[in-house]
Simulated assay, not measured.
Amino acid sequence: MHGDRRSDGVPPYGYAQPYPQTVVVRKKGGGCLRAFLIGAAVMAGLIILGSLLSRGGDAPESAGTGPAAASAPVKKQPRPKRAGIGDVVKDGRFAFKVTRVEKGLTQVGEGFTISKAQGRYVLVHLVVKNIGDEAQLFSDSAQKLIDAKGRQYDAASGAAALGLKDSNAFLNNINPGNSVRGILLFDVPKDLHLRAVELHDSIFSDGTTVTLP
C-alpha cells in the first residue's frame, strides 16, 4: 500500500528493511543420476563376477582331454587272469597248486571206513608247499568250496580222515620248504555247479581262489 512507504523507498516510522531471504535452489535430476550410476556399477560388477565364476567352473583342458580326446576310443584294460587247475597261488606261508578234481562219488573208503555222501562227494587234489620261515599247520577245515551261486561248503573232514588214505589234509604240520600232496573232500548236492575252491593257510587268512571246471 502506497501510504506505508515513502517515495525514497525508506519505510515510514523508522522500521528497518527486512533481511533478504535465502533461497535454496535444488538441481532437478541429481538424485536420479546418482541412482542410475550406482545401478550401472552394480550391474557391471555382477556381469564381471558371473564371467569369473563361469571360467572358474571349467577345468583347463590338458593334453589328454578335450573334444579330440573324448572322441578317441578308450582302450579296455585286460582283466586279470583267474587262477585255475595247474596254477600256483599263495596265501600266507602256503603255496597251493590244484592238480585235478573228481566229482559224483557217492561214497569213499572201504569196509568199516566207508563214508556215504549226503549228496555227492567232490575231491579236490592239490599240492601244498610251505614257503614261509616257520612250520605251518594245514587243515582242510580252513578250506571252502564255492558254487555258481556263491554259496560256501565246508570240507568233510571226518569222511576224509577215515575214507581217504592220502588225504593229508587233517591237521598236517608242514615245515618250511616241504610240500605235501593232499585231497580236500566236500559233500555237496547232486546238481551242484562248481565255481571255485578258496584256499587258506589258516582260518584267519584272507585266502586265495582257484577256479574249478
Rank of each mutant, 00 (worst) to 15 (best):
G150D: 01
I131A: 07
A83F: 05
D154N: 13
A156S: 06
F170Q: 14
G50M: 06
Q21T: 11
L123W: 01
G64H: 04
A156R: 08
V88W: 01
S115I: 06
A63V: 05
T22D: 05
R34W: 12
A160S: 12
P12A: 14
A41E: 05
V23I: 14
D133P: 05
P67E: 09
S141P: 06
P73F: 09
R34M: 10
P67L: 10
K76T: 15
S71E: 11
G9T: 08
G182V: 07
E198F: 10
L37G: 05
F186S: 05
G64N: 09
A160Q: 00
G177L: 03
G14Q: 13
G31W: 11
T65R: 09
D8R: 01
D191G: 08
F112V: 15
K116Q: 12
R6W: 10
N172C: 13
E61A: 07
F138Y: 12
D206R: 01
I38G: 09
V128S: 00
F204M: 15
L53C: 10
G45K: 05
I47D: 05
R82L: 14
M1D: 14
F94Y: 04
K165F: 11
T211R: 07
F96T: 03
S205P: 00
L199C: 13
G30Y: 14
N173E: 15
D201Y: 13
D133F: 02
L192S: 03
G9H: 12
G132T: 11
V74Y: 09
A83H: 06
G31E: 04
T22Q: 08
R100C: 02
G14W: 15
S115Q: 05
A41Y: 01
Y153N: 00
T209A: 04
Y15A: 15
V127F: 00
G92F: 13
K28N: 14
G86K: 08
D201M: 08
T22V: 08
P60F: 09
K81W: 04
D191H: 02
R55G: 12
I48Y: 00
A160D: 02
D58W: 12
G66S: 02
E134M: 07
A63G: 02
R120W: 02
A169F: 00
F96L: 09
F138K: 05
S202E: 00
R6S: 14
G64A: 07
A156H: 02
N178I: 08
T22W: 09
L184T: 07
L192V: 13
V210H: 03
G56E: 04
K28C: 13
L52M: 06
A63T: 06
A16V: 14
N168V: 02
T211D: 09
T99H: 10
K27E: 15
A161W: 07
